[in-house]
């Protein structure tokens, strides 16, 4: 009996348990993803998992840390899955590996490993790859792509040429490009009338993946793995600016609903903004972090040059975390009202 340190009773909780629940919460979204883009995403998830575990093992070995304990904590796998879900499903295998390697080696272990990284590793992977390989990172297959699993596999592993039909854009990107090309003569309504790209309230197919992430996120909240502050702030941030601009010029700006169910909004809100290590820790801080990230994500995705802005928004806010936390410390028991 380890009697050196009270309490002697401990709750059954572990980092591994937390991470496994996060992975489980991703499953509804992944299910919708498979339904929309085909099972190729499962291959990408497998590649990412293998890559992060290999990178993690490599770094743990270098740093003389117990392999079993840290490989088993599941944190690297969460990073891997998020990378796979954020990258285009037909991205070449090595792109995922580069992202995974960067996330684990540079963004995580060079900063001290689990619990020490100031930046979200998955978002670092996304940012590095979209800056370094903008074309590959922007090519999303159309949702009604008539290509078999074998063809997709061949594409991912580089046995088939990357033909134009495979290199579509996300609905978010498509809307932005169409509006830009239209030079004021096109309206959001006419662009979104294209039923091939757009669905009921957002991108065709995409909207259901987003609903999947939303459901998973709500489950995490119900399990008290995440608090509501971060996601609520993030969604409020995007919704607020989207609503204002949409009310102001509905012809030029899509509905808030479209923005909430497009790109990386829901994945970001429930799985990225809520990363405890790189995010704020105080309730108020989480709200501010989420809200500011939401605003920035909208600005970057609508006015910037990248297909989406979640990654950059989150990374920029990661820098501000110590400051936000410092100024949002909640009052301590018995010290309220007296500063």
């Amino acid at each position: 009996m380890d009697f050196t340190t009270p309490p002697y009773l401990l709750k059954e909780a572990s980092v591994q348990r937390v991470m496994l629940q996060v992975l489980a919460a991703l499953l509804p979204g992944i299910g919708a993803y498979v339904w929309v883009f085909g099972p190729i995403i499962l291959v990408q998830i497998a590649i990412a998992t293998a890559a992060v575990l290999a990178s993690e093992a490599f770094m743990l070995k270098l740093r003389n840390k117990p392999l079993g304990l840290f490989l088993g904590d599941g944190s690297a796998i969460v990073t891997g899955w998020l990378i796979a879900l954020a990258f285009p499903p037909l991205a070449p295998w090595w792109l995922i590996v580069v992202g995974a390697f960067f996330a684990i080696v540079i963004a995580k272990h060079l900063y001290g490993g689990l619990g020490q990284n100031p930046f979200n590793p998955a978002m670092i992977a996304f940012a590095v790859c979209i800056v370094s390989f903008p074309a590959l990172m922007s090519q999303w297959p159309p949702v009604d792509l008539k290509a078999g699993f074998a063809d997709q596999l061949a594409l991912v592993f580089g046995f088939a040429p990357r033909i134009d039909v495979m290199s579509g854009a996300t609905p978010l990107d498509a809307l932005k490009t169409a509006l830009k090309l239209g030079e004021g003569n096109t309206t959001v309504a006419t662009v979104m009338a294209n039923a091939q790209t757009f669905g009921y309230f957002a991108g065709k197919g995409w909207e259901w993946i987003m609903v999947g992430y939303l459901l998973g996120g709500l489950w995490l909240w119900q399990r008290k793995i995440i608090s509501w502050h971060g996601p609520a702030g993030f969604i409020a941030g995007i919704a607020l600016i989207a609503t204002v601009l949409w009310l102001w010029q509905p012809a030029d700006f899509a509905t808030p609903l479209f923005h909430l169910f497009s790109g990386g909004t829901m994945l970001g809100a429930f799985f990225i903004v809520t990363d405890p290590v790189s995010g704020c820790t105080t309730p108020k801080g989480k709200l501010i972090f989420g809200f500011a990230a939401g605003l920035l994500a909208y600005l970057i995705r609508v006015f910037g040059g990248y297909p989406d802005g979640v990654a950059f928004a989150v990374l920029l806010l990661n820098i501000c975390v110590p400051l936000i936390d410092m100024y949002t410390q909640p009052p301590v028991f018995g010290h309220k009202g007296s500063k």
Binding site: D2, F3, L9, D73, G115, P276, V277, T281, G334
Partner: peptide
């Protein structure tokens, strides 16, 4: 006894999950 108070799992790094802050009756961090 070992079944009543099982040996503690190895200590891991803090992941800043904030569970401790939620549990603290004195609202500390």
């Amino acid at each position: 006894s070992p079944t009543l108070f099982p040996p503690k799992a190895p200590e891991m790094p803090c992941i800043r999950c904030g569970a401790c802050a939620d549990a603290c009756p004195h609202e500390l961090q």
